[in-house]
Amino acid sequence: MKKEVKGFHILPLRLPGDGVIHYLFFKKHETKNSGEAKEESKAIFFCNLPVNTTIEVFKKFMGNVALGSTIESYVPSLLNESLEDVWIDLGKLTSELDLSETGSENGGKLPKNCGIVNFIDRSSLQLALSSLKKLSKNSSIVDWPLDKVSPTGSAYLISKYKSLIVNPNDLTNEVARYLEDFDAAEKKSV
């Protein structure tokens, strides 16, 4: 069985439940376009992720395969839960004001079922990467711990319904914050 394709390592995963094999693709994440003094990457790019992958799932997973590597953040593709093929920032298309959230990418550019795991430091990354590569090389099948963190069935679906309901206090804060930023950006542009 193939172990690599176009620079990606292939890692077979055993899905919870019926133990069917799923194939994960990964490679070290390189940021291309920053012109400034380039910070060395601390991230792994994953492709063909199973559904409902969250930072919790990854933490559990890394805990199993690369104990000691610490995950800082996880950026999933915005398309994972979308019917669209590409992500479009409507705000940018309607205003020249710079309102985009600064800092790490928000996942808008990632293709569907992809995600980036950022590690706390380079040694965490190295540890994780070398463990994963080793597993891939040996074609070892690893358990994917989705079942340990994700609710399923009725509970999951009810939570989907509930997630659409907005807490008024949170919304008040969010609106206030956004409009403040907006005012600030507007003033700055004048």
């Binding site: 899905l15 069917v20 799923h22 199973p50 559904v51 989705l146 079942d147 999951y156 679906l157």
Partner: peptide
């Protein structure tokens, strides 16, 4: 497998 997993008891 994932559909079954998501659907769970359903």
């Amino acid at each position: 497998s994932q559909i079954k997993f998501l659907g769970g008891d359903l």
